[in-house]
Design a protein around this nucleic acid. Sequence first.
DNA 1: AGCTCTTATGAATCATTGA
DNA 2: GTCAATGATTCATAAGAGC
Lengths: 278, 278
Amino acid sequence: MDEIICGDALDVLAGMPDGSIDLIVTSPPYADSRKRTYGGIHPDDYVAWFLPICEQLLRVLKPSGSFVLNIKERVLEGERHTYVIELILALRGQGWRWTEEYCWHKKNSFPGKWPNRFRDSWERCLHFTREKRFKMNQQAVMVPMGDWAGSRLRNLSETDKRRDESKVRSGFGKKILNWVGRELAYPSNVLHMATECYNQSHSAAFPLALPEWFIKLFSDEGDTVLDPFLGSGSTAVAAKSLRRCYLGIDVQPEYCELARERLRKVSPTELERIQASG
Amino acid sequence: MDEIICGDALDVLAGMPDGSIDLIVTSPPYADSRKRTYGGIHPDDYVAWFLPICEQLLRVLKPSGSFVLNIKERVLEGERHTYVIELILALRGQGWRWTEEYCWHKKNSFPGKWPNRFRDSWERCLHFTREKRFKMNQQAVMVPMGDWAGSRLRNLSETDKRRDESKVRSGFGKKILNWVGRELAYPSNVLHMATECYNQSHSAAFPLALPEWFIKLFSDEGDTVLDPFLGSGSTAVAAKSLRRCYLGIDVQPEYCELARERLRKVSPTELERIQASG
DNA sequence: AGCTCTTATGAATCATTGA
DNA sequence: GTCAATGATTCATAAGAGC
């Protein structure tokens, strides 16, 4: 259906039919971290705020679908807050199955120095499903592990890994052709992706590669991907690029407009890039 | 004191004095769903089994000490079990502070293929403390800076100083000047084994790197490191190598003997290796 | 085209100060 | 006291400029 809807996630979801979504990928506003844009939910109120929305998500998702939740707990008074793990328990109470927890390793995490901790350079990508069996296209995210890659990985310097990664990510349409005939391997549940640093003012919530990976893995072409907290629209852009339908919700008109703008720029060349790789 | 004690962890701990331990590093026995009848701990019973032990650990730990718990939840009926996150909540109820969760990325993870998940290649290293301020030797685990540093620091541009005055965002300082000549950087909270065993040829070093890292980080030479589930004795070996005292507990006599055997082999060359790298 | 070098900045956290 | 604002600290990445 390809739509960007401006409104409160709970309200919009309440008006959607049962079982109409194949995949949900979202990165909800972190507790108390974006006061200006979302009003700021205190960590102590986070679960109560998020739970009704998840109830609707469970309803609109098809039984074979998946719900990928990118989230990380904040530090409060020197401690990791517990709202994320409380949320996991609460979601299971709603009927969600906590199938897996992927680890997103952010190589270029925010710098800083504190007396009691190091830089936080990973986030959780929680994978919830309705059923024990669900749609999963494992071969869609296989990575080259031929002799060339294998020897590279054996004595890995950070630069080597970085180069391998960027080749897989950015120009993969072209590069995959170089790997025809090579051996492919399944990835693990640790994802190595750098956060995107735009030199412009737009701050990308997460890199395009993250929703791309889960969309390839948990949906087919033509399926509908939902992001109830669209932000700058990365999920929708990734979905469109991969020939999925998208449905994005955001409460802020500026973000909806920004997302629409980005979606307009998903050009035929972009689609050709994808097509060439398929 | 350097001791290996064969016995039940709870019993042995109950006989230990308050505040006698500087650091606890342990990897408790994994929950096993098949062994309910054989004496193993079922996931559903895991928290109830582990909690009294943690109560004793809290008591014997010095206020400035740390408790590092290497653990990962098992998959049960297609779902990640919730005993680990329930344990975190329960430990906070006991008075522990959940200071941080380090991610241990296991590059050589166990291979396998399942219809609903990929290879599990990361584990949690939960960091609990008694107090907000605790002992942490950050410089002891510094790592070589990335390749960018060399070219970046070779010639400092005018803008580096200009940015100091134009505090656009939040005080990006002119501390770049302080980076001149610096070759080491602080690590993040994601642990790669590669950074730990790059100059070691023997295969036995692989499991040692993890306790080594935390022992260097959270204790000084001469401190006492406790592992209430010693197993093959890696924590004690690492502690001895790093000139800490060790105290290991295991219920199985065979494991205690194996650990004692390994400790005998902590040779002067081992100590020299550590000394050379430090 | 393919390098090297420059520059901006990213879902951060803690201690201190002021209201 | 409690709470809010401010200053200090820091590393990896990609776009863009230069050669």
